[in-house]
């Protein structure tokens, strides 16, 4: 297998007359932290939805680990090792923090209907193992003390963290974060930055959409800039900061 873990070729997404994503190509290498930035409505979330299978791109191809995943269902793509968080938090709100993470463990455990009803040793072992691994993820994300609380009883910043924990539980190689710092204060954002750097240390490849420029410029190794659905720039943070097209796209947005 090559160094490239995700290759996006000319992906276009149209909604009726609106072109939300317009011929975007991208190549992501294993172990990278890549940022996607752009003004509101630029098509960033739609692009995430295309690669994770929520939408099937109108045109273009997506290869994940050299496999064509265009048109595959989200649950199939997750099983291949790609997991995401959502811009508007989507936790399982009538389930506990622990259960939320255990849902992420779904495809890694294998007990079936009969095992569950007869409580076979396969079921028991799978449950113990799933709980143990879920607790490890919760320790790692600093959520262990909240394990039996309902997901929605958590403060906002921790809910975002639980989304990350739940995604990690699926045992992914690539993590996609959609505005992970949205609504966080400066301190929470700093914690998050440190945490994302740690994740890279564990070997994850990370692609994140973010508006917080301090976060993006500090932790992303490479940045793609979208505007009106099209890619207008790509490069390392210092290049992006001084790129005239990027500055223009952000003009009046208070950046730079």
């Amino acid at each position: 297998m090559s160094d490239t873990i995700l290759r996006v070729e000319n992906v276009t997404q149209r909604f009726g007359g609106l072109t939300a994503v317009n011929g975007v190509s991208m190549e992501i290498k294993k172990g990278e932290i890549v940022g996607i930035i752009g003004p509101n409505g630029a098509g960033k979330t739609t692009f995430f939805n295309d690669i994770t299978g929520v939408y099937t791109p109108t045109e273009g191809k997506i290869y994940f680990k050299d496999k064509d995943i265009t048109g595959m269902k989200p649950f199939e793509i997750t099983k291949l090792g790609m997991a995401r968080t959502f811009q508007n938090i989507r936790l399982f709100y009538r389930m506990t923090v622990l259960e939320n993470v255990m849902v992420g463990m779904h495809s890694r455990t294998k007990s079936n209907l009969i095992d569950s009803v007869l409580k076979t040793s396969k079921y028991n072992n799978a449950e113990i193992e799933a709980k143990k691994r879920a607790l490890e993820v919760l320790e790692l994300t600093g959520l262990a003390d909240y394990r039996y609380n309902y997901a929605t009883s958590l403060p906002y910043g921790l809910q975002r963290r639980l989304e990350i924990a739940r995604a990690m539980a699926t045992n992914p190689d690539v993590l996609l974060f959609d505005e992970p710092a949205a609504g966080m204060n400066e301190e929470e954002t700093s914690d998050l930055m440190k945490f994302i750097r740690d994740l890279k240390g564990y070997g994850y490849t990370i692609i994140l959409i973010e508006h917080d420029m301090r976060l993006v410029m500090n932790i992303c190794e490479r940045i793609y800039v979208l505007d009106h659905g099209s890619l207008i720039a790509e490069g390392i943070p210092s290049e992006i900061k001084s790129n005239p097209r990027v500055i223009e796209a952000y003009l009046g947005k208070g950046v730079q």
Binding site: T52, V54, K73, P74, F75, T78, K79, A83, R84, F86, R90, L91, F92, Y93, R94, M95, E99, M102, V103, G104, H106, S107, R166, T170
Partner: peptide, 18 residues
């Protein structure tokens, strides 16, 4: 847990590999 996750949020359940 798969059942409950579907009830709470189908899109998120799908994204969790269900």
């Amino acid at each position: 847990r798969a059942f409950s996750s579907i009830r709470d949020d189908e899109i998120a359940a799908d994204a969790m590999g269900i």
